[in-house]
């Protein structure tokens, strides 16, 4: 390690051992910034979730959050699970199509670049885009109606559950593509050929090698997409300010409660942080696993 060899030019003529202890001070600005603007607010949320209206500590806030806002909890879970699942299916398919397409050569970079943009697109712009397409006055709605099927008379509504799911796919699919493309690249051609050489059909290959190798990435992608959908606020809000989803409820409670005493929004937020921590943690673990297989290092 470069630290153990005293570098008279860069460090000056000070004993390196003394320096090492003080070196951590260099991180102080960074740590302080994070503490003030991330850690303390988060701890504040968790703390307030445990306080009830009488300033005593209790877990009632947590159980109340679920019982009273059960619908929101359930809706958020449903949306996250469904869009994550659909995102995995369509995203993997799209990534595979882009990875294997040989002509034109720029196709794969285009898909990759567009996914980079679309995955981060969210917010209200996305909502507006879909409102013009499939809102009640939307162009797509009109085309469909003119041709025989009025979605609004049927089961669809852009402002409701089905609309939110559809709109979320716009960033879920690209996000899955971004996460999966490297994994698909990691599928070596020689595996496919070795499998054929040993008597395996395409089906055999995918069942015994291809899908198992992709599985950690796909599962990780699922968790990532789940977390992404669960925490999304702006798009849902722009589609319907009264959406019965957890992020909307949090904002609703925060706005309505001037005293800041009710534990409701904080309990909901803590639940959310918990979900995020588990999902992101799982995602990172699975990604490490996938990377290990992608290397198959020859010592």
């Amino acid at each position: 390690m470069s630290n153990t060899v005293p570098n008279p030019i860069a460090n000056g003529p000070v004993a390196s051992r003394e320096r090492r202890g003080w070196a951590w001070l260099g991180l102080l600005p960074f740590l302080a910034f994070l503490a003030i603007f991330l850690v303390l607010p988060t701890l504040g949320v968790i703390r307030k979730a445990f306080l009830d209206n009488n300033h005593s500590y209790t877990t009632k806030g947590f159980t109340d959050a679920i019982s009273m806002e059960g619908a929101a909890f359930w809706n958020s879970l449903k949306i996250s699970l469904i869009t994550a699942f659909l995102g995995v299916i369509f995203g993997t398919t799209l990534a595979y199509a882009a990875a294997t397409a040989k002509r034109p050569k720029w196709l794969r970079s285009l898909v990759s670049a567009f996914s980079g943009v679309a995955a981060n697109m969210g917010g209200i712009i996305l909502a507006f885009l879909f409102l013009t397409l499939l809102g009640r006055q939307g162009l797509g709605t009109k085309i469909l109606t003119d041709n025989g099927w009025d979605p609004y008379k049927s089961w669809f509504s852009i402002n409701d559950f089905s609309g939110v799911v559809l709109v979320y796919m716009y960033f879920q699919i690209p996000l899955m593509v971004l996460v999966t493309l490297p994994a698909i690249d990691g599928l070596k051609a020689s595996w496919r050929e070795a499998s054929a050489n040993l008597g395996g059909t395409t089906f055999t290959y995918w069942r015994r090698v291809g899908l198992p190798v992709l599985a950690p990435s796909m599962l990780g992608g699922f968790l990532l997409l789940f977390a992404n959908a669960y925490s999304a606020y702006a798009t849902a809000y722009a589609l319907n300010t009264q959406s019965n989803l957890v992020p909307i409820k949090i904002s609703f409670f925060l706005r309505g409660d001037v005293t800041g005493r009710s534990p409701a929004p904080f309990a909901l937020a803590t639940w959310m942080i918990l979900f995020m921590a588990v999902s992101m943690g799982g995602y990172l673990v699975l990604r490490k696993r996938a990377e290990r297989w992608q290397q198959s290092a020859a010592a």
Binding site: T42, A227, S231, I250, L254, A269, I273, M276, A277
Partner: peptide, 11 residues
């Protein structure tokens, strides 16, 4: 990542 914007708002 673990503290999404809406949770940060609560914070």
């Amino acid at each position: 990542y673990v503290v999404p914007p809406i949770a940060l708002v609560a914070g």
